[in-house]
Every structure is written in C-alpha cells, then in structure tokens.
C-alpha cells in the first residue's frame, strides 16, 4: 500500500516535471508510434511469407508485440528512470538525502523517478494487444485472463528484481552507467516468441536476462499455451528473484555505508 502511495506521489511530481517540457510529449508520441509501426511492419513482412511462425498465428505474434510494448513502457515509466537516477545519486553523493528519509530506501529509489510520457508505450501496447485478441476470435475466459494478469505481474516482478540487482552493483563499482544497457541489448529479442530461437539463446533469455518471463509467458497465457507448471515456475522464480535482489540490495547498502566517504 505504502509502495502505491509513494508511487503516486512520485508520479505526480514526475508528471509536473515532464509537463514543463511539453514538446517532449509530442516527441514521445511520435517515437512510440514509429517504434510500434516498425515492429508491426516486420511482423507483417514475416507473416506475408508464412502462415505461422513456430506455431504462432499472425494475430498471436501481434499479441506478443503488444505485451512487449506494454512491459517496455512499464520499465521505462518507472523502473529504468528511477534506477538510473539512483546510480547517479550514488556517484554524486545525493543518495544521502534518500537515506535520511524515513522510508524504505529500496522502495524510495525504485519509484523515485516517473517518466509519465512513457505511459504512451503502455497504452499502445495494450491497444495492440486488445486488437490482436479480438482478431484471434477465441474467447478469452476469466481463467485465461487471470493467468495472463498473473503472468504479467510475475514477469514485472522478475524484471524489476533483475534491474535492482544490476543497479545495486553501483554500490561497489560507483561508475556503472553501461550496466543497464545489458538489459536493453537483450530485451529486443522479446519481440518474438522465444520458441523461434535456438536452444542456447532460449536459455539465455530465460535465465540470464528474464525476457522469457517478461514477455513470452504472459503472451502464452493469453493465447492459451500456458500450462500451470510454467505459471507456478514463474511464481517460484519471482519469489526467489524478489527475495534475492532484496538481500543483495541490503548488502550493497551496508557496503555503501561502510565505505563511502
């Protein structure tokens, strides 16, 4: 509850900050439009050559793109800007202000910077997802919808844990801007269902960088491909990831307060 309260506070502050530069809204709109357009364009090229890709129908592939954008937007909305801000604060020493606030420090740094315009990606993603689902023609029952929502939530939790763990390394290495790029370099692969990739890559995209959980699993849930075992596995991974990254964060914080001048 407290997390939502703080998220709301920072979202409001973030909105005020961004509205100071209105032109950015239009730029973001254009950027999201182009990104979505080009991604769908590639999908269109592929499906013009084949009816199904590794068992995924055209509309299902579009659904994957929708999930991909919704998650992308969510990361860029709060996780990425907040954690970049955090790493900058470590470098510049302004993290001290955060650490003297009477709130959980991990929570504060995780929501401290909200780029509201990135909601556009989320909205585009969800809209494309809705269109694709309508195209599928199959009824999305309550069980499927629930599975989808859970998979999405679990995916978000796993991605968040991954990010916070990467960012926490700043406590030791101070200068580490590029580490967040690791995620972006790999995340692009999530535009396609993981099944189309060779085995070694699938493993990497599941275990090293959790693209599978973020995009493919929710998409599978929506298209009726997901079995209970996978969902259960995702829940397990999410719990471990959250707990593990929390522990890691604490170690990092301890390191920071032990070593910085």
């Amino acid at each position: 509850m407290n997390a939502l309260r703080l998220l709301w506070v920072f979202a409001r502050v973030g909105a005020m900050g961004e509205l100071a530069y209105r032109a950015n809204f239009w730029l973001q709109l254009l950027e999201s439009f182009l990104a979505m357009g080009s991604t769908l364009g590639v999908v269109a090229v592929v499906v013009s050559q084949t009816d199904s890709l590794h068992g995924w129908q055209p509309a299902e592939l579009v659904a994957v793109v929708g999930v991909y954008f919704a998650i992308l937007g969510t990361i860029n909305l709060v996780i990425a800007p907040s954690l970049s801000q955090f790493m900058q604060d470590v470098r510049e020493g302004t993290l001290d202000f955060t650490l003297t606030k009477p709130e959980d420090a991990q929570l504060l740094v995780s929501v401290s910077n909200v780029h509201v315009f990135k909601l556009i990606d989320v909205v585009f993603g969800l809209a494309v997802l809705a269109l694709a689902t309508a195209r599928l023609g199959t009824e999305v029952g309550p069980v499927q919808a629930l599975a989808f929502a859970s998979a999405l939530l679990l995916g978000a939790a796993i991605v968040y844990s991954f990010w916070i763990a990467l960012a926490t390394m700043a406590f030791w290495f101070i200068r580490l801007e590029n580490v967040l790029m690791i995620f972006w370099m790999v995340y692009g692969a999530g535009r396609w269902p993981l099944g189309i990739y060779p085995d070694w890559m699938r493993w990497g995209l599941t275990l090293l960088v959790p693209v599978a959980f973020a995009v493919t699993v929710p998409a599978e849930a929506l298209t009726g491909r997901l079995d209970a075992a996978t969902l259960g596995g995702a829940a397990l991974v999410a719990s471990f990831a959250l707990a593990g990254s929390r522990l890691f964060w604490r170690r990092g914080l301890r390191q920071y307060s032990g070593a910085s001048a």
């Binding site: 920072f10 502050v13 005020m16 510049e92 302004t94 606030k101 009477p102 709130e103 504060l108």
Partner: peptide, 30 residues
C-alpha cells in the same frame, strides 16, 4: 529519521525542473 535532517551546501535535494513547492510537496508526502 523523522526527527533529523541533513543539509549539504554542495548538494541539492530539490528537483531541478519543477517549482520549489512541488519538491516541498514530495517531502510532505514522504
């Protein structure tokens, strides 16, 4: 933490792009 405060002359906690009072509001909420 609720009873102490820290001011560092060389570092800022106010947010650069928004009016001062909105930064105050953030602290009010925290």
């Amino acid at each position: 933490l609720r009873q102490i405060t820290l001011v560092m002359g060389q570092r800022n906690q106010l947010l650069w792009d928004i009016p001062v009072e909105d930064s105050f509001e953030r602290n009010r909420a925290i």
